[in-house]
Amino acid sequence: MDSPVGHYYWIRNMLKINNLRASVEGKPILNGLSLEVNAGEVHAVMGPNGSGKSTLANVLAGRDQYEVTSGTVTFKGRELLEVEPEIRAREGLFLAFQYPVEIPGVSNVHMLKAALNAMRTHQGEKELDAVSFLKLIKEKAELVGMKQEFLYRAVNEGFSGGEKKRNEVLQMSLFEPLLSVLDETDSGLDIDALRIVAEGINSLRSPERAMLVVTHYQRLLDYIEPDFVHVLAHGRIIRSGGKELAIELEEHGYGWVEEHACTA
């Protein structure tokens, strides 16, 4: 598709992963993974530790240490894998990190403003000035239940696990990405935080956006109802289904799906 970049165009084919193989430090992790995500859909990717969930998220975001050995990925109909990480981000691909990093001395607002304006510039929009930005970020902070003082603290520095995740969701709701990849955003959250974070995520659901929710546990899916659930094992998707698959998983565990997949 040759449509202009921008959040205003409805692009049906958001993400198309075809037979993707990737390795980390020479060790194969993804072994022929295929997945299609269309606009308006929320996909959950579930799997046990070491199944390749985080690798998938990082490959999509373009992290260096993850080496793609074969396969293709298109984002909005265009080849993704050769694109620099910052360009992917500016094009509307967002990764909510499993372990958000601390950046001492750089205040949250400062980084978020620089980031948002980098994206806006890329999309041909005017940069936001400090006043408009503050107004916007305060609204968003309220939406995800973040205290304002966190906006002025150094990025993630001294944040608890839950606060860091909340900060990720804050960024997501600020950037309004076309495709959000959430890498175990639920881990380390207590139930109240989980609910607020899920509300933040749900508020972004819309016909022109898509989400890929990577999680180990079913409990996040109590709050974010997926359209599709995929089970990842040994670097490939072994089973796909509707939201009921998540419930089955919860009941029977991953071993059951793997067995089931082998005999099927």
Binding site: G62, V106, A114, A154
Partner: peptide, 22 residues
């Protein structure tokens, strides 16, 4: 990588991190 995933160029990211350091 965190900064770049947020749309900042590598150069801007370095500059931001160093300024934070100072």
């Amino acid at each position: 990588f965190y900064c770049r995933q947020r749309g900042l160029s590598e150069e801007d990211a370095v500059s931001m991190i160093v300024n934070g350091f100072c």
